[in-house]
Design a protein around this nucleic acid. Structure first.
Length: 672
DNA sequence: TCAATCCGTATC
DNA sequence: ATACGGATTGAC
């Protein structure tokens, strides 16, 4: 029933009139009379009888297309249960809006509607709830099937995976129809899209299908090209919200009808129906674009893991970085690590150096305004001299307001390195965007003014400043407005915001990671993890040290995320991060849920909820406006009970028509 | 004792 | 939302 009320989150039985018998196939959209109104619904199942005494008739079958596959139906129920949400909400995310014209077009042989699954069912239809599925990430019982031992080099399969001792066996398991589950740490310079395409091709070679989710459309384009090359034309579709309604529904239908075995896409693809699912994969699961912003706010990684658990499909969770959640999969034995050995890591990684406490600065003789910490400056200059491109990573426009003198508007500059000053937050003192030093008592060199005003410095402005530091060098920017996919191999500066770094032909000669302090000092549980993720993604685009690739990160080399970057060891950092979260009682070591709304409504819901034993209620903390937020924390073993209790409480509230809405979020990304 | 009304609950 | 049943109330 496509109604948002939590207390109606269950199936209802209807009679199927003889005239609709043929069309009324499980998975179709239907209309039924409910509480006197005509409402949309889903035909979940056809059965012979019902316990309900007085059944109404199905009003209409909206379309004969069984868009909701049995697998996705079960998945959606499991996801709703995990996230304390309603099936209807999840189905809205799982099945794109119908596009009638698209549905009619291109049926190869015309009128043939999809075959009904239950041709002999009597004219009664009932739907019963799918059994609650186990939470994938709390269910370590079934082990992954990766052999531990190294493989001799005579393995079949693409060469790229041979850099990872467990790689070839992983691909073979996919082809053999097994369900290997891997957490993959990509080497610097790795063509991840091609590796994913190979995993997909291995799965398809074994007669099964695959779903791959990436964070944004740029990653999708890259994966699209790689998968197209690996599978040949017409074997996969891309699914993303950016397609627009018609193309999105067309891609969805192609998958649902079994025309293609593979769906790749952004998080809109996480529920894509694929027959005989053999692999679910996600690239860069730490990217917050993987978190769905609509209720019940499921995360693509967790949807895919749940899916793998329900269908016995293989799993590939990969990235240059590793999340604490992925680390948990390893530590519970649910998945196996696929990593290169240290010698290979060393051979592939650029030379990475921190520059933080070193006050040594080199002045650029040509440009008086812009000076970088010496090491960064030298690395950039040498790369350019060797006719290699240089990447500079800076935060997004508006993310870091830089400042100028309130009186005369002169941009405020660092007393030590002349880098631009910026305000990490409204309350913090300004600090240098290049060397990180805090400018506690700033005085304007022009007018002596001591007050500062915020101004926005984006990648473009940074590009101008750096361009002046390296006269005669071409400067490009890649950011929100205009994202570059790639740049040619010769000398040139590329200024990019995190996630928009273009790939350079042959790799960058130098990668400079600026504003690191701003990433690290964010009041966020994931600040360290996120900083490392962004650095690794940018640093991965540099040439190996042996080929002249250098990375300079402007940060204190003693900090853990910096250490992890220097050693190219995402696993080490993730293990440390997870251990710390265990100690502090933070996700994913525990399960958290947040309850947000007007104070009275939040209190009402928590009052109503029969929280499981050991539940800890934390808060309240102010949310936006009048609203406040409470957190509930339980051990992972009680995760399902917590979600159930919260959903039930929301149901009780909606049943008595409580006015003020309350937002429930399980595993919210932002915790503070 | 019965009917009008109120309130809470289910909605196939 | 709306319809229904059971409880409640008020008038005969």
């Amino acid at each position: 029933m496509d109604v948002p009320l939590a207390h109606l989150d269950r199936p209802f039985d209807y009679l199927v009139p003889a005239a609709l018998d043929e069309q009324a196939v499980p998975g179709t959209r239907v209309k039924v009379r409910f509480a006197g109104q005509l409402v949309d619904g889903w035909l979940l199942e056809r059965v012979a009888s019902s316990d309900h005494p007085r059944l109404a008739y199905l009003e209409k079958v909206v379309s004969p297309e069984p868009v909701l596959s049995p697998e996705v139906s079960r998945l959606a129920r499991a996801v709703a249960d995990r996230y304390a949400g309603s099936l209807a909400d999840v189905l809205r995310l799982a099945v794109p809006p119908r596009h009638a014209r698209v549905e009619k077009e291109a049926r190869p042989d015309g009128a043939e509607p999809p075959a009904p699954n239950a041709p002999n069912a009597p004219p009664a239809s009932t739907a019963s709830a799918a059994p609650p599925a186990p939470d994938a990430s709390t269910a370590p019982e079934s082990g992954a099937e990766l052999p531990e031992q190294r493989r001799p080099p005579a393995e079949p399969g693409p060469d790229g995976w041979r850099d990872y001792p467990a790689g070839p066996a992983y691909l073979r398991a996919l082809t053999d129809g097994r369900a290997p589950r891997a957490v993959w740490s990509a080497l610097a310079g790795e063509d991840w899209a091609v590796r994913y395409a190979e995993a997909v091709a291995a799965t398809v070679a074994g007669g099964r299908g695959a779903v791959v989710v990436v964070a944004d459309n740029r990653d999708l384009d890259r994966l699209d090209a790689a998968v197209g090359a690996a599978l040949g034309p017409g074997r996969h579709v891309c699914l993303s919200a950016a397609l627009g309604p018609a193309r999105r529904y067309r891609a969805f239908l192609a998958a649902r009808r079994g025309d293609v075995p593979v769906v790749i896409g952004t998080r809109a693809a996480m529920f894509a129906p694929v027959e005989r699912l053999g692999l679910v994969a996600i690239w860069d699961d730490g990217d917050d674009l993987h978190a769905e912003p609509r209720a019940p706010y499921p995360h693509a990684r967790d949807v895919l893991l749940t899916r793998a658990q329900l269908t016995e499909a293989g799993v590939l969770v990969g990235g240059y970085a590793r999340t604490a959640e992925a680390q948990l999969l390893l530590e519970t034995g649910w998945a196996r690590e696929v990593v290169a050995d240290r010698a290979t890591v060393r051979a592939r990684t650029p030379a990475i150096a921190p520059v933080g406490d070193d006050p040594q600065l080199a002045r650029d003789p040509g440009a008086a305004t812009a000076r970088l910490p010496s090491l960064a400056w030298t690395a950039a200059r040498e790369a350019l001299r060797a006719d290699l491109p240089v990447l500079v990573q800076v935060p997004r426009r508006g993310y870091l307001p830089s400042v100028s003198c309130a009186q005369c508007r002169t941009p405020a500059r660092c007393a030590h390195c002349a880098g631009p000053l910026a305000l990490p937050s409204a309350s913090a003192p300004p600090a240098c965007r290049w060397c990180g030093r805090v400018a506690a008592a700033y005085a304007c060199p022009e007018c002596g003014g001591r007050r500062l005003r915020a101004a926005v410095t984006g990648a473009r402005r940074t590009a101008e400043e750096l361009g002046r530091a390296f006269p005669g060098v071409s400067v490009r920017t890649s950011g929100r407005d205009e994202v570059l996919d790639g740049v040619p191999g010769g000398a040139g500066l590329v200024i990019a915001t995190p996630g928009a770094e273009p790939v350079a032909e042959g790799g960058y000669g130098a990668v400079l990671l600026l504003d690191s302090w701003a990433l690290l000092t964010r009041a966020d549980l994931r600040a360290g993890e996120e900083a490392l993720r962004r650095w690794l993604s940018a640093a991965a685009l540099a040439r190996p040290a042996g080929a002249g690739g250098r990375v300079v990160v402007v940060a204190d080399g003693a900090l853990a995320p910096v250490q992890a970057l220097l050693r190219w060891d995402a696993g080490w950092f993730a293990a440390r991060e997870l251990a710390e979260r265990r100690e502090l009682g933070f996700p994913p070591a525990v399960r958290m849920a947040s309850v947000t709304g007007l104070p009275a409504a939040v209190a009402d819901l928590l009052d109503e909820a029969r929280l499981p034993d050991g539940a800890e209620v934390l808060g309240p903390v102010p949310a936006d406006g009048e609203r406040e937020r409470m957190l509930v924390r339980v051990p992972r073993a009680r995760a399902a009970a917590l979600a159930g209790a919260l959903h039930a409480a929301a149901g009780a509230r909606s049943a008595r028509k409580a006015a003020d809405p309350v937002r429930l979020q399980v595993d919210p990304l932002d915790l503070f």
